[in-house]
Design a protein around this nucleic acid. Structure first.
Lengths: 198, 198
DNA sequence: AAGGTCAATGAGTATGTAGTCAATGAGTTG
DNA sequence: CAACTCATTGACTACATACTCATTGACCTT
């Protein structure tokens, strides 16, 4: 009844569509990629897309969810052994670097996406915020960094990152912004948070 | 030949269209507002829009240019008496507050706008950057703020601002983000740049 | 005042793209 | 193997929206 070859085939097509959409979105943007482009790139007919996802909105949301799952897992792995704030931020940077193209698109287009897609992205951000805030809280207690309000601490870091990502066309017209500026941004930010020696 | 009533009327219609578009864009977004919406709100026919602007892209660019002129003028006025970095930033904040809705839309949608519109926005940013960098450079010489690379100094501030503006839906769902957080952001940022007393 | 100009009109066109659905045929089941 | 199921197809529809253009009538020129 269930695990027939036909069913397997369908699941595989669905996964393939998400995989291809992930690439297309990263390359061409989430709002500019058309359903027909995805079908084309996936080597299936246009109609097939709608046999798997009732609307474009559902597809987009599913793709962002898939992205969220991957990036969260990866960030978790990378931050596993991290103790200090710097290590956590370095892990964050490294994790995003591996998904930079898609992540940058999300940063750029987020507000123009359907509601469900937006809230999925917000969820991803929350989980990142949690990690960073925890590491920062600990260092504040220890007195190794300044006692800022936690939201400013997180938002200053993410604001800086997103600014560079959103303006990748200026900062690194072709190539990775994080590759080029990640290290510098990290050092700069850690310098800001740390207690100054006199 | 020139200054006839007919010509005056045409100029007035053109200005009116830009004025109305400015409001519509601020309210509904630059990419989601349709040419017909603008015609409607301006109380003219759809065709009239194209009697003044050959394409939508030209209209959008003209509107952004108008915005740029206004905001630049205003920032110049506000920053006129400012000497220190803090004063310049406060003026920046105040100036943007007066144009917040439109400016936030630009921050959110910039990358999805036509090329000509994007570069107009970049130009506005440059002029702001210049003001801030100059004030910062002076304070660095005087040793009242840390000697950061100037681009990081500017980008940290603008990144923070844009992050709050771009996420206005979360930070201040209805109402002004800068009204609510401007003061706090300014204090926070100035705290970052200043030399710590020990 | 007659004739010409041109800003404005709005119904109409062109185009792009999300979503539909009857047809197909490989896969499944009894 | 016969009957059925269902994933896939792709031509088609529906719809949105930028842009056109023949027409109108107020204004301008002589």
């Amino acid at each position: 009844m269930a695990g027939t070859r036909r069913r397997t085939q369908k699941d595989q097509t669905r996964r393939h569509l998400i995989e291809v959409a992930l690439e297309q979105f990263a390359q061409e943007g989430l709002t500019t990629t058309r359903t027909a482009d995805i079908a084309n790139a996936a080597g299936v007919s246009h109609g097939t897309v709608f046999a798997h996802f009732p609307t474009q909105e559902v597809l987009v949301t599913a793709v962002i969810e898939e992205f969220g799952a991957r990036v969260s897992t990866r960030l978790h792995e990378l931050a596993a052994g991290s103790t200090g704030l710097r290590d956590v931020l370095a892990a964050h940077l490294q994790g995003l670097k591996e998904f930079e193209a898609f992540y940058a698109r999300l940063v750029i287009e987020r507000r123009l996406l359907p509601e469900s897609a937006q809230s999925t992205f917000t969820l991803i951000q929350s989980s990142i915020s949690f990690h960073i805030s925890q590491a920062a809280g600990k260092e504040m207690e220890e007195g190794t960094i300044h006692p800022w309000p936690i939201h400013l601490l997180f938002n200053t870091w993410v604001g800086l990152l997103h600014y560079y990502l959103a303006n990748g066309d200026l900062f690194a017209p072709e190539g990775s912004v994080l590759e080029r500026y990640g290290e510098e941004l990290l050092n700069h930010y850690v310098g800001l948070t740390g207690v100054k020696r006199c």
